[in-house]
Amino acid sequence: MAYPGGAHLAGPRRTRDHARMGDYREWAAGATPGVTVWSRPGGTGRYRVLPDGCMDIVWHDGTLLVAGPDTVAHVAHDPEDSHYAGLRFAPGVGPAVLGAPARELRDLRVPLDALWPGARVRELAGRAADEGPAAALEAWAAARFRAMAPADPVPGAVAAALAAGGTVSAVAAGTGLGERQLRRRCEAAFGYGPKTLARVLRLQRALALARAGTPFAEVAAEAGFADQPHLAREVRALAGVPLGELLRPPAAGDAPSQDAANRSTALPSGSRTTA
């Protein structure tokens, strides 16, 4: 993607209520489980957004967009004097909130009015102008969750099991679904099947371990790769660069290393780092 923002900073997405690094801020949306609010100015330069299974609504200088789930990394450029805010939805949460299957948004960044009636988008944009974009989006999310039917428990259970390293066959058995049924449910909830989601979440586990200083051979074993060469192949396939390059400190003038929220038109959901 290409919109900076909703990034989990220097590692996988934060689980604590509030994280801050530089001018980027993120915090858990009150009363809306699985939703993170983020805001940041632009001007951080070129960066790489890594897949993480998340989706975002992004406000960018008055325009509202949706960033779908990514299958591979996107390299983008953050223009100066731009400002961003957004809602990042944990894997499986976004489709019910947005009213669109994730598979229709896979690897896409689209204007919000492509999904919603224009009047509804203009109302939210007006609230963002009056209240501030992050505050308006957080309030909208709280109201939306109050009005929604109870969440389908299957996507959350699938994402949690795969994030913990469970196999697709074990996850299918645990949900009581056949593998074909599980794939259809996953494509609607996450944008792709359980095998792709498992690869994306395994990449995030590996990044968390590597950023904590774990040797790469141990990262491979602990994150669930067959061996270190398998880890190297998967990082290149999903991130487009070697693991060492993802972890290197930024050079002078580079954007600071951070994970972004998604996007590639200039928006986020995915792990972000200096390209």
Results as ranks from 00 to 15, higher is better:
residue 45 G to E: 04
residue 138 E to N: 01
residue 256 P to W: 00
residue 56 D to K: 02
residue 178 G to A: 08
residue 46 R to G: 04
residue 108 L to D: 07
residue 138 E to A: 15
residue 120 R to C: 02
residue 5 G to C: 05
residue 226 A to Y: 02
residue 65 L to M: 13
residue 82 S to A: 13
residue 67 A to S: 13
residue 229 P to C: 07
residue 201 L to P: 01
residue 180 R to Y: 07
residue 22 G to N: 09
residue 125 A to D: 00
residue 245 E to G: 07
residue 45 G to P: 05
residue 130 D to P: 01
residue 233 R to I: 02
residue 270 G to W: 05
residue 98 L to K: 04
residue 21 M to A: 14
residue 192 Y to N: 03
residue 133 P to K: 06
residue 246 L to F: 09
residue 123 E to D: 10
residue 224 G to M: 05
residue 256 P to Q: 01
residue 4 P to K: 09
residue 259 D to Y: 02
residue 271 S to N: 08
residue 11 G to A: 08
residue 234 E to I: 00
residue 239 A to L: 00
residue 196 T to F: 01
residue 58 V to W: 01
residue 74 H to N: 07
residue 36 T to G: 00
residue 154 V to R: 13
residue 130 D to L: 10
residue 42 G to D: 01
residue 170 A to Q: 15
residue 47 Y to R: 12
residue 173 A to G: 15
residue 184 R to G: 08
residue 64 L to A: 05
residue 230 H to L: 01
residue 215 P to F: 11
residue 253 G to M: 07
residue 254 D to G: 08
residue 192 Y to R: 14
residue 32 T to C: 13
residue 77 H to R: 15
residue 28 A to P: 02
residue 273 T to L: 06
residue 251 A to T: 09
residue 194 P to Y: 06
residue 86 G to K: 07
residue 210 A to P: 01
residue 23 D to L: 11
residue 40 R to V: 12
residue 205 R to V: 06
residue 202 R to T: 14
residue 223 A to L: 01
residue 123 E to W: 07
residue 270 G to Q: 07
residue 130 D to V: 11
residue 113 D to M: 04
residue 210 A to G: 06
residue 90 A to H: 12
residue 107 D to Q: 09
residue 103 R to E: 08
residue 186 C to Q: 05
residue 153 P to K: 14
residue 82 S to E: 09
residue 121 V to H: 04
residue 58 V to M: 09
residue 152 D to H: 09
residue 157 A to M: 12
